[in-house]
Design a protein around this nucleic acid. Structure first.
Length: 326
DNA sequence: CTCCGGATAA
DNA sequence: TTATCCGGAG
């Protein structure tokens, strides 16, 4: 009997040559810096969202050295709207660390990568595979789904046991070399064919090798935490064509410009406007007031034009729009 | 509306 | 181990 892993690698390779996403902008040079930036952006964010933003980023910060030298303002501005802003600060810090500690060369060593901020098990392996072509298991959500179905793993994948099973199975089918193509192929298969929900098994090159009994039910996951409601009051200071914002001290939206919190002392009776937005496990209703008193010293004035060029989280941007619409 | 997704601090 | 961080797509 011919080795199952060998068949899987062969079929996957052939499928990838014909159907893979070879035009993704971070799949042209595979420079470690481009892989680094794309992988940070791809954490928790879709390919469609980051594709144009990746291109703009590379215009702004073409090299690791230029990113390392950039200001925090510029980096957060380039990340504006992508969410999870700690990724931007950590990516910035990685660039500075690599310049000062590794002569500007992103390390090829797993433990050195894991020691860098914002680089966890996934991103470290992704760098080894995509930048350095090493055959390692790259366990993003797409590949985890493919592995779970291929081997009919019915243990929930977000438990320690389940994740370990996935990891062992993924290591089992690794080729001896060409880790970049293998990881890319598995990832594209998961994203384009072995999709969450209803997979396109008729179009799958691995259907003969797949052991899934009910592929649409895999992988199993533990239930999510419930959504709870919250309320917050914020001030819309708009005087002499200037809008007054405060710099968030975090952890939420740290370093970004937000509408200032509105205390009961300065809060007028009338709600000026209100919006509701989801954030992690909350649904927040933001009530907006127009205080009449003096403007706190901690706030910074911006002209309407300037608002476009500073980092403002999406819900606050939306709140500003509804205020201006009145 | 609901679902989806890596790293980290606690 | 568990909760937190965000915005886009369906």
């Amino acid at each position: 009997m011919v080795d199952r892993n060998y068949i899987i690698q062969k079929k996957l390779n052939a499928w990838f040559r014909n159907h893979g996403r070879h035009d993704l902008p971070w799949r042209t040079t595979f420079s470690p810096y481009e892989v680094l930036v794309s992988e940070f952006m791809l954490q928790q964010t879709t390919v469609a969202t980051i594709t144009p933003r990746f291109l703009i980023w590379m215009e702004l910060f073409p090299t690791l050295e230029m990113l390392a030298q950039a200001s925090e303002e510029a980096v957060l501005g380039a990340w504006q709207g992508l969410g999870y802003y700690s990724r931007a600060r950590r990516l910035h810090l990685v660039a500075k660390t690599v310049v000062s500690n590794f002569q500007g060369k992103i390390p090829r060593d797993l433990d050195q990568l894991l020691a860098l901020p914002g680089i966890g098990p996934y991103t470290a392996k992704a760098l080894l595979a995509f930048a350095f072509d090493q055959p390692v298991e790259v366990l993003d959500t797409n590949i985890i789904r493919v592995i779970a179905r291929l081997n009919n793993i019915t243990e929930p994948i977000d438990t320690k046991r389940g994740h370990l099973l996935i990891k062992e199975s993924a290591r089992n089918i690794l080729p001896p070399k060409n880790g970049r193509v293998f990881a890319s192929a598995l990832m594209d298969l998961g994203s384009m064919v072995c999709k969450s929900g209803e997979p396109l098994c008729d179009a799958c090159p691995l259907s003969s090798e797949c052991e899934a009994e009910e592929p649409s039910c895999l992988p199993l996951k533990q239930p999510r935490v419930a959504i709870t409601k919250k309320k917050e009051q914020r001030a819309f200071y708009y005087r002499r064509n200037k809008i007054y914002l405060e710099k968030s001290q975090g952890p939420l939206w740290k370093g970004l410009w937000i509408l200032p919190h509105c205390s009961s002392v300065q809060k007028p009776r009338e709600i000026f406007s209100s919006i509701t937005y989801p954030i992690t496990r909350y649904r927040v209703t933001m009530e907006l007031y127009r205080p009449s008193g003096s403007i706190p010293k901690s706030l910074h004035p911006f002209s309407i034009l300037e608002l476009k060029n500073i980092a403002i989280p999406s819900p606050h941007r939306k709140a500003l729009e509804t205020c201006f619409a009145k």
